[in-house]
Amino acid sequence: MIMFSRDELAGAFERFEATVARAAETRDWDPWVEQYAPDVTYVEHAVGTMRGRDEVRPWIWRTMESFPGNHMTSFPSLWTVIDEPTGRIICELDNPMRDPGDGSVISATNISILTYAGDGLWRRQEDIYNPLRFVSAAMKWCRKAEELGTLTDEAADWMRQYGADARSTEGRRQR
């Protein structure tokens, strides 16, 4: 096993975070994918295991350009651990959603384990989270946006799909 220095791992993760921040800002997800080795293994527990950039790329575009991903504004790390012997970065990433219209901050977090390949590339990423927390956060955002009159049609469709009739919840609350 190749050992990478703490400085190299920290620098690579700093570049990873900057690339992810730019992707979230520009909504161009290709640079995010390009920081993975061509034969990356990406484990996403709710979706499955993707192998190679060619499997990761369409998934990330689809995920981040549809609700609720397209309402997530950034993915900052809340804490990180650098594990030199394994070449891994273990971190908790926040996934805040855009302001529904009243300054609310609604988000969910996940744990990510990134394994470094060298040369600024990552050979593996595993995202660990409770999907129900993401559904709950997105539903909370939808309800708040509905109250404020900022609920998009796409979010309303998602809300109906996951258990709430977006156009009739207000009426139920008033009864």
Rank of each mutant, 00 (worst) to 15 (best):
residue 119 D to Q: 13
residue 1 M to Y: 06
residue 44 E to Q: 11
residue 171 G to M: 12
residue 10 A to N: 12
residue 60 I to F: 08
residue 163 G to N: 08
residue 174 Q to L: 15
residue 109 T to Y: 01
residue 73 T to I: 15
residue 115 T to H: 03
residue 91 C to T: 15
residue 149 G to W: 05
residue 129 Y to A: 07
residue 61 W to H: 15
residue 31 P to I: 05
residue 137 A to C: 02
residue 7 D to R: 11
residue 128 I to V: 15
residue 18 A to V: 03
residue 39 D to I: 05
residue 134 F to S: 09
residue 74 S to N: 09
residue 33 V to C: 11
residue 67 F to E: 05
residue 37 A to E: 04
residue 69 G to K: 08
residue 72 M to K: 02
residue 31 P to N: 02
residue 112 S to D: 15
residue 151 L to W: 05
residue 61 W to Q: 13
residue 105 V to D: 07
residue 16 F to W: 15
residue 1 M to Q: 10
residue 109 T to W: 04
residue 1 M to H: 11
residue 77 S to W: 13
residue 101 G to K: 03
residue 85 P to L: 09
residue 175 R to W: 13
residue 121 L to A: 05
residue 143 R to D: 05
residue 166 A to L: 09
residue 68 P to A: 07
residue 9 L to W: 02
residue 45 H to N: 06
residue 57 R to I: 08
residue 58 P to I: 11
residue 167 R to S: 13
residue 104 S to V: 01
residue 127 D to E: 08
residue 115 T to R: 14
residue 158 W to C: 04
residue 27 R to E: 07
residue 42 Y to M: 11
residue 83 D to Y: 01
residue 147 E to W: 06
residue 138 A to W: 02
residue 173 R to I: 10
residue 37 A to P: 00
residue 128 I to M: 07
residue 139 M to G: 08
residue 157 D to I: 11
residue 138 A to H: 04
residue 141 W to M: 03
residue 21 A to H: 07
residue 157 D to Q: 14
residue 143 R to W: 08
residue 162 Y to F: 15
residue 142 C to D: 09
residue 171 G to C: 00
residue 97 M to V: 04
residue 14 E to H: 10
residue 173 R to F: 04
residue 92 E to D: 01
residue 94 D to K: 06
residue 142 C to K: 07
residue 2 I to C: 03
residue 93 L to H: 09
residue 170 E to Q: 14
residue 23 A to E: 01
residue 131 P to E: 02
residue 26 T to L: 02
residue 141 W to Q: 01
residue 111 I to N: 08
residue 138 A to C: 07
residue 58 P to Q: 10
residue 126 E to P: 03
residue 158 W to M: 03
residue 63 T to S: 13
residue 155 A to V: 09
residue 12 A to S: 13
residue 101 G to W: 03
residue 146 E to S: 14
residue 105 V to T: 11
residue 44 E to A: 07
residue 2 I to G: 02
residue 102 D to G: 14
residue 151 L to G: 00
residue 19 T to Y: 09
